[in-house]
Amino acid sequence: MTPAEIALVVLVVLAVVILALSSVARRLDRLHRREARSRATLEAQLVHRAEAATALTDSDLLDPASALILAEAGWRAAVTAPRLLGEDGADAAEERGLAESELTRALRAALGPAADQEQWATTPESSQLLARLATASYRVQLARRFHNDAVVQIRRIRRNLLVRFFHLAGRAPLPQTFEMDDELTVLDPSSGTSPSSAG
């Protein structure tokens, strides 16, 4: 091989490597943007669930003790717990997960089994409150699954030796999955089902 041919082979190999690395970097960037959007969606759905839970406390469905416990858990989740966005970010995920799990447990205790909830669905107002909570709880479960899926994909790619060696992730922090207890069955009187039963 002549020096010119060797140089050409080296250039071709370098071009292929650069194309491959830039492709991985673009994919990683897209995944990070997807994770940021899914985190924002999850944050919004968590707030909607807390609002729906708090709305139950203003009704006559719950006994005063259950209403007080649920109102406190809803307040903590909606107002005082750290946000998943902004400066709080990923560091706050564990603390927020604990607050959201506490709200789930308070809801489970206040609502009881679906048979008890059927007794509440006798008026349009109470049916609407249960339907709102059922929808909000189901959307939280979906948003959390989408978010955690994006995080898992990012973490898998970032474990790659080439990604670490060439710093393809830049300064983006390593995202964390959002863990919480979201197993909650809420009767949706409008459909007669429990869409928020977690699997």
Rank of each mutant, 00 (worst) to 15 (best):
V24Q: 07
A106E: 02
A20N: 13
A99D: 06
D63R: 11
R39L: 13
S59D: 03
A73P: 15
A53I: 02
D60C: 02
A53G: 12
L103Q: 01
P82R: 09
A99R: 11
L42A: 00
R34T: 06
V17M: 08
W75C: 06
V24I: 12
A44I: 07
H32G: 11
S59H: 07
D58A: 13
R108N: 13
A106T: 13
L103R: 04
L31Q: 04
L68R: 15
A52W: 08
A92S: 14
Q45N: 12
E100W: 02
R105C: 03
T57S: 04
R108I: 10
S66M: 07
V47P: 02
S101D: 06
R76C: 00
R96V: 05
A81C: 08
A65G: 06
E72Y: 04
R37L: 02
A71G: 12
R33H: 10
A50F: 03
L42I: 11
I69M: 07
T54N: 02
A44Y: 05
L46I: 13
D29N: 14
L68F: 03
I69D: 11
A78G: 12
R108V: 14
S22E: 03
T57W: 02
S22H: 09
R34K: 12
G74C: 09
A71M: 08
E43W: 02
R26S: 11
E72C: 01
A93R: 15
A106Y: 03
A52Y: 06
A99P: 15
V79D: 07
L31W: 04
A73R: 03
R26M: 15
L21Y: 06
S59E: 01
T104C: 12
L31Y: 04
E72W: 02
D63Y: 01
D60Q: 11
R83D: 09
D29R: 12
R76Y: 02
L62P: 14
D88N: 14
A73H: 10
S23P: 08
R30V: 14
A52R: 07
P82S: 01
R108H: 06
T41G: 01
L84E: 00
A110W: 13
A65D: 15
R108T: 11
L21W: 04
R76S: 08
L84Y: 00
A36C: 04
L21R: 13
E94F: 06
R33E: 01
D91E: 13
E87V: 14
E95C: 02
G86Y: 01
E100K: 05
S22W: 06
A20Q: 13
L31S: 07
D60I: 05
G74S: 13
R37K: 08
T54W: 04
S23F: 09
T80M: 04
Q45P: 11
R33F: 03
R83N: 08
